[in-house]
Amino acid sequence: MKKSIHFRVNGIDTAIEVETHQMLLQVVRESLGLTGAKFACGIQVCGTCTLLLNGKPVSGCSVLAVDADGSDVLTVEGLAKDGQLHPLQEAFMEFGALQCGYCTPGFLLTAKALLDENPHPSEEEIRSYLAGNFCRCGCYQEIMRAIQKVAGR
């Protein structure tokens, strides 16, 4: 069964026809060409497919695209504004908070959601909020420092 959905992706009004059983990640990557978010575990454990749906982090691999009808979707491609990287992106580069980069879009978006909700989180609050994002290169210390810098800590 096909259904037309209308949503805002990175601030752009988007109308698209999807299969009702398609996942949002697939639509974002394959139909819209936004390949920042990655597929990995497929069971909402690892965080590489994180997207912000109405400002809240979700696993794109497990959200039905039809369920995003009428929503605001932010992908990592929408973080930079007018050619200016987001402060989190700048900080990730400054502290070398990545190696292979596969998990980075998910970490950036989850950190953005945290800072939008709680602009000055403690180290404990950052750890707790990001506990569901995995970095198998093990850049956790650098990621922590990068987020703390943007959080003004």
Partner: peptide, 12 residues
Amino acid sequence: EKDVANIRVRSM
């Protein structure tokens, strides 16, 4: 709730 699954599951 702080310890239920992860933030993506809790948001959804």
